[in-house]
Design a protein around this nucleic acid. Sequence first.
DNA 1: AATACGGGGAA
DNA 2: TTCCCAGTATT
Length: 356
Amino acid sequence: MTESFDYFVISKTLQCWYEQNKRELPWRETKDPYAIWISEVILQQTRVNQGYDYYLRFIRRFPNVKALAKASEDDVLKQWQGLGYYSRAHNLHAAAKQIEEIFHGEFPKKYSDILSLKGIGEYTAAAIMSIAYREPFAVIDGNVLRVISRLFMIEEPVNSVRGKKKIAAIAHAILDPQHPEIHNQAIMDFGATLCKPKQPKCNDCPLQVHCLAFAKNVVSEYPVKNKSTKITNRYFHYFHIIHNDHTYLCKREANDIWKNLYEFPLIETSKPSTFIELQNTASFTRLFGANHDILFTHQSHVKHILSHQIIYADFYKVEIPDSENFSLPDKFQKIPAEYITDFPVSRLIHKYMENY
DNA sequence: AATACGGGGAA
DNA sequence: TTCCCAGTATT
C-alpha cells in the first residue's frame, strides 16, 4: 500500500516536471501511429538532435504507410543515408508492406500485432501503444534503465537478463495507467536531460527525496553495467574506376556493416596491405586481370571509426583508357558518373565522393 | 546469453 | 579516448 502510493507520487512528480520542462518536438504534435512509429524507429539508439531532420524529411517524402510501402528500397535507404543502423530502414520498408498486406493498410492497434512488425521490439511496441493509443504499456529504454537503476539502486547489471527483469517490474509498477503517454515521455525526457549518464543534475532533481542512490551519494556508480565487447580492425581497399565517364558500384548483400548500401569495388584484407601486395591477390586479378594499361593512383587513406570496429580504408583512382575493353561481373553495376549520388552509400563512401 | 549493427556528440 | 544514445535481430 505505502509502496504503490510512493510509486504514484514518483509518476506524478515526473509528469509535473515534464509539463514544465518538456522539449517541443514535431512527433509530439501528432497522434498518428504512423508518424509515432517513424519517430520511434529513427530514435532507436539515436539522439534527438541527430534524428530530428531525418524525421521531417522522411515524413515529408513518405507521409503514410502506403507511400512508404510502394517506395523503392533504394529510395528508402537514400532517405536514411548517414543515420546508421541501416537495417532499421530496411525493416521499416518491410513493415510498411506487412501493414498493407496483413492489416489492409491500417496501422494495427493490438500490442502483439504491432510487435509482429519488422524492426519493432518491446520498446517501440510499448511506445506506440502508449503514445498513439494511450494504452498502459511501460517503455523501457536506456533512459528508463538508468533512472530506475538509480532511484532503486539496482545492483544487477542493466544489460543482464536479471537486471532487465527487475527494472521491467519496477517500470510497470510505477506506470500511471491513467496517463501512460505522459508518464513514458516524461521519464524518458527526464533521463535524457536531467538524470543524464554523466553529470546528472541532482541538485535540480524533483525525485531527489525518492532516490536511493542520491541518499547514499553513489549516483555516479549507477547504472551497473557489464563491460562491452572489444573492437576489431578491418582494412578496406576501394577502387574508384573511371572508364568512359562511368564508374562501378556494388551493393553490400552480406550480413555485415552497411548491408544494402552501395560502394566501390572493394578488396578487404586481414592486415594492412600496400598496393604491391594487393596486386598479388586473387581478388585483384579477378577485378582487373592482367591489364597493363590501367593507371592506379592512391587517392586517400582514411580511418573510419564505428562502435565496434575501426576501418582503415584506402581509395584508389583507377583510370582505364576509353578505348580499352573493360567490364566487371554482373554484381558490379556500371554507373554514369553523374548518377552516383542517386545511390545510398555509407558515410565513408559519401565523404570520399564529396572530396573527389 | 552474447554479439552485430552506425554515426555522432559530450566530457 | 570513452561512453552511450527514445533498440532489434541474429546466433
